[in-house]
Design a protein around this nucleic acid. Sequence first.
RNA 1: GCGCCCGUAGCUCAGGCGGAUAGAGCGGCGGUUUCCUAAACCGCAGGUCGCAGGUUCGAGUCCUGCCGGGCGUACCA
Length: 579
Amino acid sequence: MNTIKKELTETLKTCLNADPEEIAGLLEVPPDPQMGDYALPCFAFAKQMKKAPAGIATELAGCISPPSGITKMRAAGPYLNFHVNRPELFSEILCGIHEKGSAWHRTEKGKGETVVIDYSSPNIAKHLGVHHLRSAIIGRSIYRIFEAAGYRCIGINHLGDWGTSFGKLIAAFQRYGGLSAEKASVSDMQNYYVRFSNEAMKKPELEDLARDAFRKLENGDPDATALWKQFKKVSMAEFERIYGILGIEFDEYMPESFYLVMAESLLKRLKKAGIATESEEAVIATLEDENLPPLMLKKKDGATLYATRDLCAAEYRWTNYRFRHCLYVVGGEQKLHFLQLTAVLKKMGYKWADRIEHIDFGLLKFIDSETGRANKGSTRTGDTILLEDVLKNGIEKARRKIEENAEKLSEQTNAEELAAQIGTGAVIFSDLAVKRTKDVIFDWDRMLDFQGDTGPYVQYAHARLSSILRKAQMPVSTDADCSILQMPEEWRLVRMLEIFPLRINQASEKREPSIIANYLLELCKLFSTYYSLGMREPDKRVLCEDKNTLAARLLLVNGIKTVIASGLQLLGMDAPQRM
RNA sequence: GCGCCCGUAGCUCAGGCGGAUAGAGCGGCGGUUUCCUAAACCGCAGGUCGCAGGUUCGAGUCCUGCCGGGCGUACCA
């Protein structure tokens, strides 16, 4: 919080029966700057004081002697409006950003606390499709938002490398032969899996083969294990290549298979505690008292399920990290699974069970070209759209645009790198700009759009800001006289910068990257408008004649640029210097 | 059937904890480039905030019911 707001809060406290934090939370920004710069709505006090809000506002105006940062105070209906000493606020914010740089927005809210974030977590032996994008992108952004809030973050890729489907795949390789596992690509694995599944629909006995193969795998059979290791190796190489394009990283890869050794002891404990029981030859945890369907923990063929491994993983994470939050960035269709998971953990007596949180997101849907309806899963043809293809298309489109603009860019620009930054930026932003829980209909044009409310729009603003600082014949300095900044657009901009930390706070509380994305759009829009004023009126340019004005505007430009770069970092996007 | 998510302009979406006049982008129409990057800017057109009740000084926002769409609902993850 800035000094002026803090002083104002303290002053208000002298006349109000409320604690400073509450008052600060109440303070808002009036819709029109003419009304004032801060407003105290008095509705909240009406009940406790048994007076009309408008009366309270007037009364307060008489009671308070405003601090030095406030130049004017006026009751306007139920609001008490304040005008601040603008140069003072300009200076505090812009100098703060210049001095602290990319650390300006960081807080210590989560100091000493750990948050575990499980994201991406794809299954091996399958290509990454576009539908795998959301978990990775949202998870990484939430990671960075919590990091900015001062938490220690642990990003985990809970790799799906275990489960009955690998029994099918092993059986397929053994049945069809002809292709050695060493040479098999991820596509081959997918094809084998599909072929086997299709055949099994006609010949149910193949299911037994698959079950046998999986049992062998669970028992450590060397042949099955060798195949499985190969699947994993090839898959990992592909995953890492694509994570590389997106710049996605993890602190740990913790595959499901890792937890296998813990499963038996878990089941034993659950049975002993009466939480798990045998039913129809399987082991389940009934959750009737929680109003939930039972959770299956062991199939009648003896195989464990992902719920079993998830329970082990949760215990493991707790013993290792003592997390404040353990976030699972997983699609909303798995809501029930996580409700059951936390219900079982609660039954086990774990107080930390309510720290487990399912960060759900909407489904990626595809338009069926025949019916015109949006459906889950792949396109009608059965081919999933590969994440890598989406990224490559975005990068290619950016490359073409860069070539068109070649004369604008210097030789120092690495076109290949820039195309990657913009192409992936467009894809990432299009995913993060919308609230998590909304379903998304896949659309090439929208995902790869570079105009309007898009990632490249934000990056472009950053490039323009960078360009100004490059061309200025003087360094940014906190000695600038901010009282020269008189344009309403400049004021709006600094007010927008002021709320960046608040938005991060909101974004972390709601686990919602779209709050950052939309904030950046608002900020960039204000900047673009401001910038364009200089087209016809040279004295409105940042790089103007008057040296004092130039100095003050450079400080402002520096602030905007720094905040945009920080915001992009929170979303996992690059901030190009030129484009 | 039950549970969860979504419903705001033709399309895609924003709308701090209920508060001052519901905002963007795309698409449509009309403008802006001897000028700090036109991946930009400005203007016009476009709204029964799914429907109906309720809570109150005040509801897009909270509560209840309904409608529409999606997802899930014991041997997949």
